[in-house]
Nucleic acid binder design. Sequence first.
DNA 1: AACAATTAAATTGTATACAATACTATTTGA
DNA 2: TCAAATAGTATTGTATACAATTTAATTGTT
Lengths: 158, 158
Amino acid sequence: MSEVTPVLLDEQLCFSIYSASKKFNHFYQSALAPFKLTYPQYIAMLALWEDAPLTVHQLGQRLELDSGTLTPLLKRLEKQGWVTRMRSRTDERQVMIHLTAMATAKRDEVYQRIGQCQTLLGMSDQEIQALMTDLVAVKNQLDEVSRQRLIDKKVNVQ
Amino acid sequence: MSEVTPVLLDEQLCFSIYSASKKFNHFYQSALAPFKLTYPQYIAMLALWEDAPLTVHQLGQRLELDSGTLTPLLKRLEKQGWVTRMRSRTDERQVMIHLTAMATAKRDEVYQRIGQCQTLLGMSDQEIQALMTDLVAVKNQLDEVSRQRLIDKKVNVQ
DNA sequence: AACAATTAAATTGTATACAATACTATTTGA
DNA sequence: TCAAATAGTATTGTATACAATTTAATTGTT
């Protein structure tokens, strides 16, 4: 008796975002091919160029990635000469990620290449800003809902 | 002498999208936990509920995924009883993906659960539509730029 | 000081993604 | 017609993601 509204793929915001994310990933990956950086490696480098040195934990908070993803990624970056990983002497649990001289030297070259990519989007800064604001709002709402669900669960358990 | 504009993580549209995509993925994954469907498995089911049967190739075009991703994913869906995979008799190269009776039976239950999730976003249909339109525009632009680059390459080769 | 609780990374296991290659079936062109 | 080209799927190899567990170091408490 009760009609259920069909869920159509093309009407799902999640699918637009999922799909756009993969396309961006691919786009930057090929733009970064001369540097042999993958997209996740690239955003790790962006964070480090802003704030190095960082602990694995700090980098993880910035990128929303855990050690299960970051540890192997950082080992690959180390192997390719972008970073060094060294245990903190004041707290042996922590691993500090430092930039190498090569990473510092190549920074502006990467900045320049990516800066060009941004303009290729053909969007004004205002348009990009507006889109980003919406996306952040969606993210925050998802966090909020997840948080409430978690509390509901806890309440139910008691 | 020439100043290079720094590339700041928080100003990158790609990072907003990447980050929102992961969050959506996680959000739906937990909403779908009762059905033991991952997010990519779920969108495959959405496409199949709309149009089954589909060949692997057709499904790949719909989801923008290739056989390297879909073959193992579909094998897992088959193992869990959602789909069957059978070689087409008219063209033995093709593998047709059919829904099982269980998949058809559970469709509305999934539709209902996901329909509820949409409302949790607290956005109007207009807002969601506007955001999706922007995202599609970004995707198209990325495709366009990639296409031009490809042509440039070919021209350069000649 | 002793020891439980906590924290930080690494590891393990599962599931995407995707480039590149392989394999088979079909189609096409000389 | 039959060999070359093409098409559809599967496989291999590399790189994320992330939950869950493990290990080691630090902190808090008594």
